[in-house]
Design a protein around this nucleic acid. Structure first.
Length: 895
RNA sequence: GGGUGGUUAGCUCAGCUGGUUCAGAGCACCUGCCUUACAAGCAGGGGGUCACUGGUUCGAAUCCAGUACCACCCACCA
């Protein structure tokens, strides 16, 4: 039962700022967000954990709005809904921020011990961490905050170490000297995925090398002339006739004057450059391979920070790019540069620091991926894990089939420290252990020596951030350390994951792998890939470009619900979203529309009475039956949309149901017959009951507005809130096509009358006479029974319906599905204009009829098309011909 | 170099299983309305050769092939 809200308290405009914080607190305090395992079926989402020190941007807004829609709907459907929030320690990004901050204070990382640095990092984390989660609350995210996790918390830390040890024991993890991607700014190794390749305009320098002992030379082409200093060979294609006589001889490296062999290898493309390649095994992946094959010397000329070291012999201490300028100048002077070509090539940049990556030979830890990739690939390809949209399966497959080992060690301090303990310098002189004591014991055993704690030391490096987040769906339920605990068994596998396609390889693929490896089970059933949020110039919204609006400003301006709707409206899965603020405006306007619909219903309530909102309709009332049919066919449609993750389509259906059907037609029709009088109680109750269904359908999309209205509509009981109201079920029996069709005819007629008024400048509120020449007797009855509908929506003096009617003189007309309507407009009508109007309609229908006849006259069509399709065409033909006949008749009368 | 997607109204985009008056929504535009829920609104209206060329089909915006342009992802060619 509801009591009438105090009318004076309902303002004309919906004010989100008044409702949002209030209801968010109410939901949270009431425990609606919290989940504990129980007998219900679970519905679980784990949040893609944002960087702990990050700030909410538009991508998060989109992503988390979608998650919230899914979770809220599941909650209303009666699932035990659990959305686990949390943050990621983001090893390299956070460490970079801390280093910067310390630098501003005049402290360099090298001045600090590991422990001191970590203290600063934790301070920073506590100061800035979690801001982003607070921002998510403004958006309305219904996360279970009691479950908030951080990837560097003790138990998650321990889980990651356990996982490392386990994988080591299974033979997946190994240590090796490999060519890796080195970030000279962060001074750490990176995985292949952390390198972004960008097309850059570069110069290709053709440099002359002398041949030892001869008065001859050879020209090589390079984009990185500074690496000449570390050349240890020159290489040509063995079949290249130009260079046959050089193979086996020696070339003299410019500047350093080092004699190096001229070797032959298939790898060299004779067509490219000069067909002659310099080999720098320490600074290029391919050169390294060739170096290994030909047993070449390796000269590493770079320091960790990208400056040149003693082995370069020249420009020592200069940065690599400075050294490039220097060497070019010197080579120029020696007249060794024969040509400079403009070219574009791809250069690798660090995803985090945006500096140019150096390939570097380095001893790192790797995780072998081949075996884990198999079930992960298979179960996506067979849709055990479904991708939405499915097109991403292709790139997933391509990546999985060509997967390379994962470099998991980082030369950083902020992260899980690698549990390797060294007791000597030899390649095998280490043990993997969780604690120092255990390590000592193992080291003693392995070495056969009586070692002490002073003899062993732990690896100083930490693990890649993604080596902890790939376990996220498991570790948030403590499923690594306690693989049989109640929570992991209840919540895992989770249901849906919502994330950006850019982290498919970083994260999604690896979670699927770790899921099968550690749980023997997928981590989630569906992956919904959102698009990238771009600005109106298609640029990715980013902080550095400054083209991203502050989401909190938008929420202030349009309300969280308005922003949510705006973001979802033009955003099907996997499609980029070109964000414009007027999308939020549309959302805000929609909120206001609903607010006013509610306000109108509330205005019609008597202070003294109670109103039931139990769903009931007047079976004898076409409008009620029609509205209910519309509601149920919409529910049916959105269920289908949700099944297919077409969330924007679901929203559009609800939008149209509320605005176009409920507000524009239904509300207009339940208005009181008397000016200024309240809607009769029972009629109002029917309207309220339908309105409640609409609110429920809308709640996942616009949680604040719907809760605000819900609470205003009824006396508050502690356990009554729309957030936990029951999701409406579609009832197919109520979708009565004949009611929808009849009402649609009436709608068309009313539109025709409005059009006539507009065309002939008849004021909307001037009385007109309406004559309907119905197509048949049944329709006469239908129209007569529903005369009130016409009268409610139009000011009508006399109203007449019959099968047989004389077309009045000087009237405007229209034909709607075989029935004619006439509006006498003596003195107002311009007959010439009316003839044009009718002729235009005749032309349109003739064109249509022609295409229908084209089909029906085609024997092939009649023979081959399904019977119902042919029948439909016949019906169209008949209907159109009828309408045309009538229009021609009308036209005849006019002339 | 390999892959994926896009091209529909002035703009941003829907259009799902080929067939319903299928060519649609929002914004923008034009006209008329402060009609006692809402001007953040109501009513009416204009606007499209569905990139191009072929093909499949009784029938194509929709399926196939090619072309052009655009976007994104992946890859160790100096």
């Amino acid at each position: 039962m509801s009591t009438s809200p105090a009318l004076q308290d309902i303002p004309k405009k919906y004010d989100p700022s008044k409702a949002e914080d209030k209801w968010y607190k109410f939901w949270n305090d009431s425990g609606f967000f919290h989940s504990e395992p129980d007998e219900r079926e679970s519905y679980t989402i784990v949040i893609p954990p944002p960087n702990v020190t990050g700030v909410l941007h538009m991508g998060h807004m989109l992503n988390n709005t979608i998650q919230d829609v899914l979770v809220r709907r599941a909650r209303m459907q009666g699932y035990n809904a659990c959305w686990v929030p949390g943050t990621d320690h983001a090893s390299i990004a956070t460490e970079a921020k801390v280093v910067n901050k310390l630098r501003e204070e005049g402290i360099t990382k090298a001045d600090l011990t590991r422990e001191e640095f970590l203290e600063h990092a934790w301070d920073w984390t506590h100061e800035h961490g979690g801001i982003i989660l607070e921002q998510l609350k403004k958006l309305g995210a219904s996360c279970d905050w009691e479950r908030t996790r951080f990837t560097l918390e003790d138990d998650l830390y321990e889980s990651v170490i356990d996982c490392f040890i386990e994988l080591y024991e299974r033979g997946y993890i190994y240590r090796g000297k490999r060519m890796i991607n080195w970030d000279p700014e962060a001074q750490t190794a990176l995985s292949d995925e952390e390198v972004i390749h960008r097309e850059k305009q570069s110069k290709l320098y053709h440099v002359k090398y002398d041949i030892a002992g001869e008065d001859a030379n050879v020209v090589i082409a390079t984009t990185r002339p500074e690496t000449i200093l570390a050349d240890t060979a020159v290489c040509v294609n063995p079949d290249d006739e130009r260079y046959q006589d050089l193979i086996g001889k020696q070339a003299i490296i410019p500047m350093v004057e080092r004699k190096v062999p001229i070797i032959a290898d298939e790898y060299v493309d004779p067509e490219y450059g000069t067909g002659c390649l310099k080999i720098t095994p320490a600074h290029d992946e391919n050169d390294y391979q060739i170096g290994q094959k030909h047993e070449l010397e390796i000269i590493d000329m770079l320091n960790r920070d990208g400056t040149l070291n003693e082995d370069a012999r020249f420009y020592v201490g200069q940065d690599r790019f400075e050294a490039r300028k220097s060497i070019l100048k010197d080579l120029e002077q020696q007249e060794r540069i024969v040509k400079v070509e403009e070219m574009s090539n791809k250069i690798g940049y660090s995803e985090r620091t945006d500096t140019v990556i150096e390939p570097r030979l380095s001893l790192q830890w790797f995780c072998s991926m081949d075996k884990m990739a198999k079930p992960a690939l298979e179960n996506v390809m067979n849709d055990n894990v479904q991708f939405h949209p499915a097109k991403f399966k292709n790139s997933y497959r391509h990546w999985m089939e060509n997967i390379r080992d994962w470099c998991i060690s980082r030369q950083l301090w902020w992260g899980q420290r690698i549990p390797a303990w060294y007791f000597g310098e030899g390649a095998e002189e280490y043990v993997i252990a969780k604690t120092e004591d255990e390590a000592l014991e193992k080291a003693r055993e392995k070495s056969g020596r009586d070692l002490t704690k002073e003899d062993i030391h732990q690896d100083v490096d930490v693990l890649d951030t993604w080596f902890s987040s790939w376990l996220w769906p498991i570790t948030v339920f403590d499923g690594i350390r306690n693989p049989d605990n109640e929570e992991i068994n209840y919540y895992y596998p989770t249901n849906d994951l919502v994330t950006a396609p850019e982290i498919m390889f970083f994260w999604v693929a690896r979670m699927i792998m770790s899921g099968y490896e550690f749980r023997g089970e997928k981590p989630f059933s569906n992956v919904y890939y959102t698009g990238i949020v771009r600005d109106s110039q298609r640029r990715k919204m980013s902080k550095s470009l400054g083209n991203s609006p502050d989401p909190l400003d938008l929420i202030d301006q349009y309300g969280a619900d308005g922003v949510r709707v705006g973001m979802l409206f033009t955003s099907p899965a996997g499609n980029d979203l070109l964000f414009e603020e007027n999308l939020c405006e549309q959302g805000r306007n929609f909120a206001n529309k609903i607010w006013n619909a509610f306000r109108f219903l509330a205005m019609n309530m008597e202070e003294s009475q109670d109103y039931s909102t139990k769903l009931k309709i007047d079976e004898d009332n076409l409008v009620d039956r029609w509205m209910l049919a519309k509601v149920h066919s919409t529910i049916k449609g959105i269920e289908e949309d949700f099944r297919k993750f077409r969330i924007n389509e679901a929203l559009k259906k609800i939008y149209s149901l509320i605005w176009d059907d409920f507000c524009d037609w239904y509300i207009e029709l339940i208005k009181s017959d008397e000016q200024g009088a309240n809607i009769p109680k029972e009629r109002l109750e029917r309207g309220l009951s339908i309105f409640e269904v609409l609110l429920k359908l809308l709640h996942p999309f616009m949680p604040f507005l719907t809760e605000e209205i819900w609470q205003l509509m009824r006396e508050r009981k502690q356990d009554e809130a729309i957030i936990v109201a029951q999701w409406p079920a579609a009832n197919e029996e109520l979708i009565k096509d004949e009611d929808i069709a009849l009402f649609a005819s009436i709608q068309s007629m009313i539109s025709s009358i409005r059009n006539i008024r507009a065309e002939f400048n008849v004021p909307q509120r001037a009385d007109i006479a309406l004559l309907i020449k119905a197509k048949n007797e049944d329709l006469v009855d239908s129209f007569q029974q529903n005369e009130w509908i016409f009268r409610k929506l139009q000011d009508i003096g006399s109203f007449e319906v019959a099968v047989d009617l004389e077309q009045p003189e000087a009237s405007a007309s229209a034909v709607v599905e075989g029935s004619e309507i006439f509006v006498p407009l003596e003195g107002l009508i311009d007959l010439e204009k009316e003839r044009e109007r009718i002729e235009k309609e005749i032309n349109r229908l003739e064109g249509f009829l022609k295409s229908v006849n084209g089909k029906l006259n085609n024997e092939q069509f009649v023979e081959n098309a399904p019977e119902d399709v042919v029948q439909r065409e016949r019906d169209k033909k008949e209907d159109t011909e009828t309408n045309l006949d009538k229009l021609r008749g009308i036209l005849g009368e006019l002339s």
